[in-house]
Design a protein around this nucleic acid. Structure first.
Lengths: 232, 232
DNA sequence: CCATGTGAAAGGCTTCACAGCA
DNA sequence: TGCTGTGAAGCCTTTCACATGG
């Protein structure tokens, strides 16, 4: 690879499209690297990273190779440098302002979740349609009226939205968010949302996760079914 | 709920190993089917299911074919029958008793999340190590002392555990859960947990989801030009 | 030596296209 | 006719194995 065959711009450090599976593992590596940074560790090997992240070391090396060759053969990777490269590739050098729509149990939990702040995501608004909640304080935020969604998004210059609301209203709120120009959405609503394909939508569904667990648990409980034999 | 008194299903125990990607889509289909059931719809086509679930129709048909041939050519699938088959394949005919460890913001939100109950998951315990919380009532549950984890799991006969606690204690609590004999675990802690390979562990990481969104958002915002700053 | 970086092989998933059947 | 069920092709991901170079 690295052949100078590209007839177009050489693109010095711009990472091209990363495989989705790689992107999600990069977030893992970044977490481990930041842990190592805090401990003062300066170098790390792909083997060591692999063990912490629970993947194969060849996988780690291939993932990192998409970012460029930032390791040193025979030695490993420089923690601080690699951490910076990954953060850059993931777009964490931008400032991300997150609005949470839905101040129910889950929305409140998310609003107070320290993990967002510490990773560079700034929760700038919390909205709900329930007039009983509007105006109350949760964490350090005052709950805004979901009726004013567009204004609140504009005023806070939110560029990400988290949907923490019932399935019944998720689609309509989602549509308004998209129309308002926010095209990165994380939904916790247990429903499939339709969005234009220029919108980045991710979904977390807790009931689905439990159902997947149930499948695997049940499979183990059935005796004698899966005795994988090389050949009978 | 729906105590499955499976009458006479003379099937050969179907449900061999399903592809993981299929399992997670089956939970989607099941949700749509139950919606259709509630509306009184009797039949559905793979095209229609595909559109609701946001996948290709060939994908739907292949997924369903792993369960057997329960469709009718030229017509479609019988909603009630298919719903039953999927629930059976996913192991939802068992009764799943879930203990939630961690009664912080997230743990409380989960304890009150209606989506669990309605899908056949019974939240039987909520535990925390904080003595200020122990004994208080959250939803219809009384918070138990995490020090008594093993006893609580045994007494409630929990067969699934949800970890909603800080990264710092997640591994040790996880170990105790595994030793106590609960081998299906859903973790919300932002840390990689090590478990024996006979344990089913799934992970939901909200900060990771936002980081993946950030990657894609950044990608769109800077189509050709990375040049945030051409670092010297 | 040692650990990275990477072609090539292997495995898994999705999509295609159409045969088969009500 | 219309929609299911499915081999085959294509694409993506992981794993292997080893050349490479500090």
């Amino acid at each position: 690879m690295t052949s100078a065959q590209t007839p177009e711009e050489p693109e010095p450090e711009a990472a091209r499209q990363l495989p989705p599976a790689t992107v999600s593992r990069l977030t893992l590596y970044l977490r481990m690297l930041n842990g190592l940074l805090a401990e003062g560790v300066e170098r790390v090997s792909s083997d060591s990273l692999a063990e912490s992240a629970g993947v194969g070391s060849a996988n780690v090396r291939k993932d990192l190779s998409y970012l460029g060759s930032y390791g040193t053969r025979g030695v490993g990777y420089e923690v601080a440098n690699l951490s910076r490269k990954i953060a850059q590739a993931l777009g964490l050098t931008h400032e991300w302002r997150v609005a949470i729509v839905g101040a129910g149990n889950l929305g409140r939990a998310l609003a107070r979740y320290a993990g967002f702040e510490s990773r560079g995501f700034d929760v700038v608004a919390l909205l709900d349609a329930d007039q009983m909640l509007v105006g109350t304080e949760i964490g350090w935020l005052r709950v805004s009226d979901a009726a004013d969604l567009e204004e609140v998004l504009a005023k806070t210059r939110a560029n990400m939205v988290v949907l923490a609301l019932p399935a019944s209203v998720a689609q309509s709120v989602c549509d308004r968010v998209v129309d308002a120009g926010v095209h990165s959405i994380l939904s916790f609503a247990p429903v499939v949302l339709n969005v234009p394909d220029y919108v980045n939508l991710r979904k977390v569904d807790m009931a689905t996760e439990l159902q997947i667990l149930a499948y695997h648990a049940q499979r183990l409980q059935v005796p004698g079914l899966d005795a994988e034999r090389p050949s009978a």
